[in-house]
Amino acid sequence: MPAVEVAALGAARKLLGFSRSQLLVENGTVGDLLQQLKTLDGRTLYEHMVCEGRLRGDFAVVVDGLSLKADGLGKRLLGGEQVVTMAILRHLHGG
């Protein structure tokens, strides 16, 4: 099974300590992938980004260009996907 390409931006990058990586997720889901991603504080990205089984509002996960809905952590990964994890910036500006 091909590896999943993982990119981490902003706060997610700082939590993980890397910006790009490859992981094997055997028949797993996006939720499983987040569980596999260990953060520098000894926890997992899942623990940081997920609350009560739903993606927290201040984080986002993009799989092959499509933003995951909050309840979409069960999305199955077949391998070869490009997954971007990031924190949402609340205070971008507009006019």
């Binding site: 390409e5 990119a7 931006l9 910006s19 790009r20 986002a60 993009v62 260009g65 499509l66 971007v84």
Partner: peptide, 10 residues
């Protein structure tokens, strides 16, 4: 983020 091949290296 939708096309990670173009992501800037931090």
């Amino acid at each position: 983020t939708a096309k990670p091949q173009y992501l800037l290296d931090p």
